[in-house]
Each structure stands twice: as structure tokens, then as C-alpha cells.
Design a protein around this nucleic acid. Structure first.
Lengths: 102, 102
DNA sequence: TCTATATATCGAGATATTACGATATATAGA
DNA sequence: TCTATATATCGTAATATCTCGATATATAGA
């Protein structure tokens, strides 16, 4: 866990918000019938909800992916992003260790 | 807890390191006899350990103080900084809530 | 193959952060 | 009051981040 990159990825309210939204699929419009089997949420839905440009959201999701907080899965033309709960917990533990425990 | 400012204050390896060092007074040179009663560590010691300029450390400590992670106490010409464990724990809990719990 | 759609990447201007040296302020002691 | 020391504040150049629009790439379907 690269704490440098991890904290940096979280040092943005929208990226933190997206991570939070991804906790619950119902924060987004229902999946299309052909995507019922795909895990996660496509970039377009995240973009719409966040209200930022497509390129910005794509970069944001990449930043979150680089540190492992989310994973990406391609299904056709769509990329679906979903949380990596282990990595998120790992970060919280590392942060707790770094700040609290001597 | 202003998460915006809090994460921003932690988005710097030296500031995180300082918070960690402050966990244990023995990370710094022993206190002068006339400071035996003062809680915390003076700016000069922190500066020396961090290896950055005096003005930078002063600004860093102020950033940490603004979000409540440390508190400051003046004793004569010295300012002593020490951790606010409650606020740090409050931040860790808030972070955990924001990231993990839906 | 051609077109439409979804996403990724690129380049850039605006803004924020970093870290410094210079200077100001506060206090202790002569 | 004058000087020395500790810390705070100011002005700054360098660097990083934010966010966009334009463009490139990937895939599905006609």
C-alpha cells in the first residue's frame, strides 16, 4: 500500500464521494438488462451522478484504480468499476497504524 | 471535523511523519530543564528532525493545528506542540464511516 | 467496412501546494 | 531599553492538481 498515492487519491471530495456511492449499487440508475451479470457501475453513470466531465471522471477512476481502491472490468464498450473492500480496509488499517499506534 | 481540511493536512508525508513522531516524546532530544513541565515538543526540535526550514515547519504545524490534530502551548519564547488524540481518533472514525460503512 | 457509442488519453489554463529566504513579532535576559 | 532567540508571517518560484475540450481507441452492430 503506497500511502503517498493512497492519501492523494482520497484528497478530493468527489473521489471520496464516488467511493462512497459505489458502496451501494442503488445509488445509480438500474443496470441495463444486458449488464445484469456485470459487477459494478459504468463510467457514464458515475459521471452523470458526479456532474463532472467524462475525461475527469475517467482520470478519477484511474487514480482510484492505481491505488487499488476500485477494480475495473470491461464488458463490451463499457468499463465497470467496483470497490475493492480489502484494499480499502487495508488503507484504513495502515492509516490507523501510522497515526495512532506507536 | 472538516474532512476536506483534515485529509489535506494529512496529504503530505512529512506532516504525517511529524504526527507519528509526536506520539513518543523520546523521538526528540530531551526537554531542557526549564521545560520539564511543558507538554509537547518545541518547533525547533521538530524542524531539526524533519530537516525542513523553520518557516515551513511553522506552517505545517499550523495546518495540523487548524484541523485539531495538534494543540499548541506557548511557554516563553517557545511554542510546544502535542497531539490531540481525540481529534485524531475522530478523524479515523469519520474516514472509516465515509469509506467503509454505507 | 462504416458508424455510433463508451471510455481513455492528451494538452492546456486556472488554481493550489510546496518550501524557501526575508522579515515581523514575542519573549527573556542583560 | 537593547540584544538574542524562538516562532510566525509574508512574498516567491517551482511544482502538482484540477478540470476541461479535443482527440484517440475499443467495441458493437448495420
Amino acid at each position: 500500500m503506497d500511502m503517498e498515492k493512497a492519501v492523494s487519491a482520497l484528497n478530493n471530495p468527489i473521489r471520496r464521494q464516488i467511493l462512497h456511492w459505489l458502496k451501494d449499487r442503488s445509488n445509480f440508475p438500474p443496470a441495463l438488462p444486458e449488464h445484469k451479470d456485470a459487477e459494478g457501475v459504468c463510467v457514464g453513470y458515475i459521471q452523470e451522478k458526479a456532474g463532472l466531465s467524462q475525461s475527469t471522471i475517467s482520470a478519477y477512476m484511474n487514480a482510484l484504480k492505481q491505488v487499488g481502491f476500485v477494480e475495473a472490468e470491461r464488458h463490451g464498450q463499457w468499463t465497470f468499476y467496483y470497490r475493492n473492500e480489502e484494499k480499502i480496509q487495508e488503507f484504513l488499517n495502515a492509516m490507523s497504524n501510522e497515526l495512532s499506534i506507536s
